[in-house]
Design a binder for these strands. Structure first.
Lengths: 205, 205
DNA sequence: TAGATTGTTAATCGATTAACAATC
DNA sequence: TAGATTGTTAATCGATTAACAATC
């Protein structure tokens, strides 16, 4: 109910709930329950109810949750009820794929800036934006008051790039480079490395 | 020491340790300690020692860990001391980027098969492999005894594709589609969805 | 009303951390 | 030896689950 100290692990599950709700909504379903959601996600119904209870009362006894309402609430809580402008840094093969991926728009994000240090790429278009010189990145990020960045540069330069980001006011970083980044406490980093996921599974094979 | 029931959360950290060790090794460093590793990863040294102690004694009191030795041990534990053949299913923009990403080889994986259902793509080369018709996928996966697959198809068809994979003997799936998959208990799934990561951070902004 | 499901409490379970003997 | 760091135990901390009153 009160917003004092929500565990990060709970916050991390909210996007998953939101994703599952979108899927249900797409089928035309209007109501769901903690049991149904839990079954679809491999999570206990108690956990879902407990997680949601940190933020308010979104359901109705005997009925469950109205999907559209719960979506609205989760979007509000996660602050994706409006779009965030995202800077993409590094437009190699991976960066290109990220930029051209169409799935961001309806989930709260829009790539509005792209940077690279390769003169051959600067000025070219990727997705909806023109690739700019990473040298002018600090100014541009400040001008646009950009808070969110995706890093798709080689591992060797990722830390240096991140330091420029931090100095330019970036507060959330999605890192595609397979390296751990050091940032100040007020800057958030998430990692996406397919190989750590694969290695986690081969253990069990 | 004994291998009875290692918590999955511990297994999930081993690839992160391995990644950090590779980074240290690349700088030419030969020895590290739980303190140094912990500091680099934002993890307590006690946790690192505890995690490793599930699998054996890899360090030396007063000295720390020989990096190359710990790498060898972790690779052995995670079964990435040899390469796994990986099937890529869905060769759109994202699949292309995944196939062309060079980082798999030295971390235990090799994309040896690629499938798509688009006649225009079948027969074309992506990375080092020829794209094959998804219709013949079950036979090909069986022939190659492939255990690991990466799914980069649209969300609408991901579950159906996964069911074919499961029937064809796949035991580990890395899913790029933004949807939760239902699989039998002996099949492992990991998810990689950049937007859930982004949404998790915007909560704090 | 009867049936169903929420929100919440208390109990259980598991993971993290602090501390230290062992020892290189 | 003295200093440092491991591996491990016990204590702490936090997350999950079971259960149920409230109520739609």
């Amino acid at each position: 109910m009160t917003s004092t100290e929500i565990p990060d692990i709970v916050v991390g599950r909210l996007p998953v709930y939101l994703r599952a709700l979108s899927f249900l909504a797409a089928t035309g379903q209007e109501i769901t329950s903690s049991h149904e959601l839990g079954e679809k996600l491999g999570i206990s119904s108690a956990q879902i109810r407990k997680d949601l209870s940190h933020f308010g009362e979104f359901g109705k006894q005997g009925t469950g949750y109205r999907i559209s309402h719960l979506q609205d609430q989760l979007r509000r809580i996660l602050k994706v009820d409006h779009q965030w402008e995202v800077a993409l840094i590094g437009v190699g093969v991976l960066g290109h794929a990220v930029a051209r991926y169409g799935g961001f728009h309806d989930r709260g994000f829009r790539i509005t800036l792209a940077f690279d240090n390769d003169p051959a790429k600067i000025g070219e278009k990727v997705g909806d934006t023109i690739i700019q010189d990473v040298a002018i990145m600090p100014d541009v990020l400040r001008q646009h008051d950009t808070k969110v960045a995706m890093i798709a540069v080689p591992a060797e330069v990722a830390q240096a790039v991140v330091e420029v980001c931090v100095k330019s006011g970036i507060k959330a970083i999605l890192n595609y480079a397979p390296i751990h980044l050091l940032v100040p406490p007020d800057v958030h980093v998430q990692y996406t490395d397919p190989i750590t996921h694969l290695q986690r599974m081969t253990y069990y094979l």
